[in-house]
Design a protein around this nucleic acid. Structure first.
Length: 669
DNA sequence: GATAATGCC
């Protein structure tokens, strides 16, 4: 494959979340601290920040902004008295950053410097520098919209534009304004980002000044293909082996692909090809990397390879931000990503392979130059690259907003339709969310204003999608709260079922014993009961292709949800063998996701008459129940229902009579 | 009739 050498880009690259990579041998923290580029700018930086209410800080890789700036502010007495909050999109980052800063300050973690993430609060009344996930600060804001305890809010990794960060922008902006109006202590807001979206951030925060920090990034050579590639997998394969035959064996390759199946297939192909290489060629270790891969197998990607052997990592976009692998010399970027879109009119989530944005391509490229100079092969032409979108569409414009709207209402935002989003979701998307909350009985109109009902307030107490909160809240009526807690917890973590494509038959055989003819939810319940009966035994998990890590996480979620139930005085009963009670409860919470079997053997959703099919992963795949509810729709090659539960049609009518009568009318007209 | 990017409360 012919490739033109291009000049390295003038742009620098975005910093990976510090601390998320495995620690190598390094000098003591307080020794290293002074050599970071930010140190030289300390005086002028503090002088500017002291005067500003809001600032946008652009820092490049290795600028040290996340670890140093909070310390500078604290040491200079900026924001005293009060707590300095630093938010992160990911838990590991919040935890490791706090640990790093505590070490630099030579204090015990959890005292002056602490962190707060779900299930793990390592902070106390003396904590002044507090690292938290953005979702955590958002939860806190529901109880205290003005964020009284904080004097400074630093929103880090803002360019990632997670749904939580985007809502937080609006929350801190409103808190800052209200505190000013009421003559309270000011809230200083500092938005930290990589070299993207700068103008947007500044404009949103009323023209806040942008401060640039110098970084350290090794140069990266970029190669584009001369011609457009019709098959990016083939192109990737060619690139991998071209690099393999030319470059020294110690230099590792990171390849960006789109999903599990593709990666597993490519892993196999590469391993096969590597078997038949000419004499003198280095050996090759091919390692897949994606989120649903069991932890132990993910760890293999971090292990250094023995001398004379090259590591080739085939990864999803997990390696773009969440996971940093040391020693990558070559990045191969297919330019493709699997990402979710949402259309409010159909309520459909669409998971589709699409082109990355320019920002995303730069992010991938940057993974090559972290410890040494690197090379990035882009498997598309430069002309095509120029046509890529500048930025990835923020998540808030690609999601079902039911959860967000519920949170905004819990924050007592007067009008969710005019909430000050940095990037406004479409009014249709917001309206669809309001309609959904209305169906669930969470909202009502009061003096021309949309407010939460008592049920809605209870729903907002749960860290869950509103339909799952509803399931829990109605479960006492069916005496099955314990079962519903289990099911909802299982559905709100990554799948506890491990499905390695290579062992498909084995998986099917071993999973038979859990299968319930009453659908996926009850099958999951069986899995949980079996897991409990062996006390989560590791060997049992392995034999049964159960992801033990996700099971443990699920147990933590369940305990948290159960606590909330206790606080709300919900009677927690078990229905034992009465599985119909569980299905009835699911009918009462998932009724807007219902589908009926048509005479021709296909399915159609009850509301929007959308043609749908049973997802092959469902235990009901080869069955034809007359009427089902499902957890969600996903369009890949077809429009699939996931996590199905057979229900009686009468249950649906009993659950939401108005909704179904209305639907019937529209169906007739 | 044939299969699910990532992350968080």
């Amino acid at each position: 494959m012919a490739q033109d050498r291009q000049e390295p880009p003038a742009k620098r690259f975005k910093a990976a979340p510090p601390g998320t990579q495995p620690q190598s041998a390094a000098p003591p923290a307080h020794v290293q601290r002074r050599s970071l580029p930010i140190s030289g700018a300390r005086g002028p930086l503090l002088a500017r920040l002291r005067r500003l209410d809001t600032a946008v800080l652009i820092g490049e890789t290795g600028s040290g902004k996340t670890t140093q700036l909070p310390q500078f502010l604290y040491e200079a007495g900026i924001g005293q008295p009060g707590v300095i909050a630093v938010t992160q999109p990911r838990r590991v980052a919040a935890v490791t950053l706090a640990a790093r800063v505590a070490e630099e300050k030579r204090t015990e973690l959890g005292k002056l410097v602490g962190y707060t993430v779900r299930f793990d609060d390592c902070s106390c009344a003396q904590t002044r520098l507090r690292f938290l996930t953005d979702g955590m600060l958002l939860r806190e804001a529901i109880g205290d919209p003005l964020l009284h305890k904080y004097s400074v809010a630093i929103l880090d990794e803002a360019h990632e534009r997670t749904i939580h960060t985007d809502v937080l922008f609006g929350v801190v902006k409103a808190a800052q304004k209200k505190r000013k109006e009421r003559g309270l202590r000011p809230l200083k807001v500092i938005v930290m980002s990589a070299t993207m979206d700068v103008d947007l951030f500044s404009q949103y925060f009323s023209g806040a000044p942008v401060i640039y920090l110098e970084g350290r990034q090794h140069p990266i050579d970029i190669f584009y293909t001369k011609e457009r590639q019709s098959d990016y997998l083939q192109a990737a394969l060619v690139s991998i082996f071209q690099i393999h035959q030319e470059a020294p064996a110690c230099q590792d390759i990171l390849v960006f692909l789109t999903g599990q199946e593709e990666i597993e297939a490519m892993t196999k192909t590469c391993r096969d090809v590597a078997q038949h290489l000419p004499e003198g060629c280095p050996r090759m270790t091919v390692l897949p990397l994606y989120a649903s891969l069991p932890h132990s197998q993910q760890l293999r990607a971090f292990k250094p390879t023995p001398e004379g052997c090259r590591k080739v990592i085939l990864s999803t976009n997990i390696a773009e931000t969440s996971i940093t692998i040391a020693g990558i010399k070559f990045v191969v970027d297919t330019g493709m990503v699997k990402a979710k879109k949402y259309s409010p009119d159909t309520g459909l989530e669409v998971l589709a392979v699409q082109q990355v944005s320019k920002a995303q391509a730069w992010q991938r490229t940057g993974r090559a130059g972290r410890q040494q100079s690197g090379v990035c092969y882009r498997l598309y032409t430069e002309e095509d690259f120029e046509k890529f979108e500048e930025m990835t569409t923020p998540e808030i414009q690609r999601c079902n907003l039911a959860s967000v709207v519920l949170q905004l209402l819990a924050l007592k935002i007067p009008n969710v339709l005019t909430f000050d989003f940095m990037s406004k979701p479409s009014p249709d998307a917001i309206q669809a969310a309001i309609d959904q909350l209305d169906l669930l009985g969470a909202v009502t109109q009061k003096e021309g204003q949309l407010v939460l009902t008592p049920l809605g307030k209870k729903m907002a107490a749960f860290p869950l999608d509103p339909k799952f909160s509803k399931a829990i809240l109605v479960s006492p009526q069916f005496h099955c709260a314990e079962e519903i807690l289990t099911i909802v917890s299982l559905l709100s973590v990554d799948s506890v079922l491990h499905n390695p494509p290579a062992q498909r038959d084995e998986v099917q055989a071993v999973r038979k014993k859990f299968i319930s003819s009453e659908g996926d939810h009850l099958t999951l319940l069986n899995v949980y009961r079996a897991y409990k009966s062996v006390n989560g035994h590791k060997g049992w998990c392995r034999e049964n292709f159960i992801n033990g890590r996700n099971m443990k996480l699920m147990a933590e979620v369940r305990a948290q949800l159960r606590d909330i139930c206790v606080k709300l005085s919900l009677p927690l009963e078990s229905c034992r063998g009465d599985t119909a009670a569980v299905r009835r409860c699911l009918a009462h919470s998932l009724f807007m996701n219902a589908a009926q079997l048509l005479p021709d053997g296909s399915y159609s959703t009850v509301g929007s008459q959308q043609a749908v099919a049973i997802h092959p992963s469902s235990v009901l795949f080869q069955c034809k129940p007359a009427c089902v509810v499902f957890t969600g729709l996903l369009r890949t090659s077809r429009c699939y229902m996931r996590d199905l539960c057979p229900v009686d049609a009468e249950w649906l009518l009993e659950a939401a009579p108005e909704f179904f009568h209305r639907k019937l009318r529209t169906a007739k007209s």
